[in-house]
Amino acid sequence: MSTLHLVNKSPFEKDAFDSCLRHALPGSAVLLIEDGIYGALQGTAPGDCFGQATELQRYVLVEDLRARGFGAEHLVVGVQVIDYEGFVDLAVAHELVQSWL
């Protein structure tokens, strides 16, 4: 069993990102979508935290990233940028998808 966690909140506003990282088991995947993408930015405390969570597979949704004026070059190391097609593939590959609302 492996879980895909979805986070759609800015870590600067809500606790969804923190709570997700506290509960996600090693080996599970975390995908940041919508305002969640702000959790992967370089030079920020949440970004550092996300970058250091090497026990997780970490992803950011590129459509939401670009919409907000950022690109892969702004993200911490170790994060993979995927599009909606990749999102679907991740959902297929994980038996459980858990949203952190």
Binding site: M1, T3, R22, H23, A24, L25, S28, E95, L96, V97, Q98, S99
Partner: peptide, 11 residues
């Protein structure tokens, strides 16, 4: 709780 979540079919 983290373990429990991971064992579900649906969350």
């Amino acid at each position: 709780l983290s373990q429990l979540m991971a064992e579900q079919d649906l969350v």
